[in-house]
Design a protein around this nucleic acid. Structure first.
Lengths: 205, 205
DNA sequence: CTGCATTTTTGCACTCTCTGCAGTGATCCA
DNA sequence: TGGATCACTGCAGAGAGTGCAAAAATGCAG
């Protein structure tokens, strides 16, 4: 480890290149052929590296497709912690998740592609689920702190963290599904509004 | 397919026996040694059947531990559909989930054992997550019907189904975690009450 | 540029997972 | 009782994933 600033020598750059080449190849091949009709050897070939190199970058085939982004995970937690302390848990969650949504706005196409691949392959769905579960876990402690509750004794923090992630996921799913969607942040806001009202069934016109 | 009534000849009985033997052996071995230090061969040996037989019952090692119970899945959906039609989505969900919770009451010990194993092994967590996701999917359509919304256009059904499952999971987790817990049904009720109030942060005494 | 240290990539051998196939024996039913 | 069915079994084989040591590429100091 040399420094924390972005010093990208040729070595690191090339490593990232091969990593992305593998990821791209994996996504493309699986999108075309389905998860179980693509071998790691296929992916490695397409990225023009050895199979062993693939496993140097990813512990398993699935991780090349839905790698849990640990970096983003920590940033989310940090963002939540840094919310003004006079905000209640829900308000704080709403703020950071809307912030996150805003950052994702530019990547709709990529997200849709990834979502297609994930939806089509149950094994990947499982992985994605557990990724979201990690988000929930990250949030529980801070929700507990802000509400003065104990995750080991009270329903509140666990429930609230999960529900917040559910709101985000529901908004994300809809945003990737419908044509000409509104801003993702707005959808997330809408979801939190529904939650605040106790999920009242919408009255038909 | 012979009939729908419970006709259990010796053949079926034996089949179920080996299945449960495999499941028990798997749970015990993994609880003792961890998921990746237990091979399918170990499990098959412990259950005194061949490895091939293991794979006749379960498509993979993980499924022997957290098998998605398709039967229960369909029953839940049916129960929701059969709720009185004048009940709103939330009320109906609350009713069927409390009903489900009541049935689980007797199996607390087994659930705790399974939960320990699942918590200790990320690969199993992923599988469990996707199992819950199946529950969500089962519920979405009926929530949409009862609320007159469209899952492809509205946030409401997806969000509500997910939040309901979140309520159940949070209650279940707490129930398996704390000592001398209240009735699971009551915890579920509590969770739904919190939801109905828009998850207000509890005011400390 | 040169030599040395570091890191990535690679090939190889090996274990384990999972599938298809063919055969055997127990169970079921007429 | 005899034929059909079904669970179980062994085997051969492809694919996933790991450890190890060697080779290639890169970074760096002199």
């Amino acid at each position: 480890m040399k420094n924390v600033i972005e010093t990208v020598g040729r070595r690191e750059r090339k490593k990232l290149e091969t990593r992305f080449a593998l990821r791209r190849a994996a996504l493309r091949l699986v999108a075309e052929n389905g998860l179980d009709r693509v071998t790691v050897a296929d992916i490695a070939d397409a990225a023009d590296v050895s199979v062993r190199t693939f496993f140097n970058h990813f512990p398993c085939k699935e991780d090349a497709l839905v790698g849990a982004d640990l970096h983003r995970l920590q940033k989310l937690r940090a963002a939540l912690t840094e919310q003004p302390s006079d905000r209640g848990p829900i308000a704080a969650l709403r703020a950071v998740i809307i912030e996150l949504a805003a950052k994702l706005s530019d990547y709709r196409e990529d997200l849709i592609a990834e979502m297609r691949v994930v939806q089509a392959n149950p094994a990947l769905r499982a992985r994605e689920m557990s990724e979201f579960a990690q988000y929930e876990r990250e949030l529980v402690a801070e929700v507990a702190r802000r509400s003065g509750t104990d995750p080991a004794r009270d329903l509140y923090p666990l429930l609230t963290a999960r529900v917040a992630v559910s709101a985000f996921r529901a908004a994300l799913t809809l945003w990737c599904t419908i044509e000409n969607p509104p801003e993702l942040s707005n959808l997330v806001g809408e979801a939190f509004d529904l939650l605040a009202q106790g999920l009242p069934p919408p009255r038909s016109a």
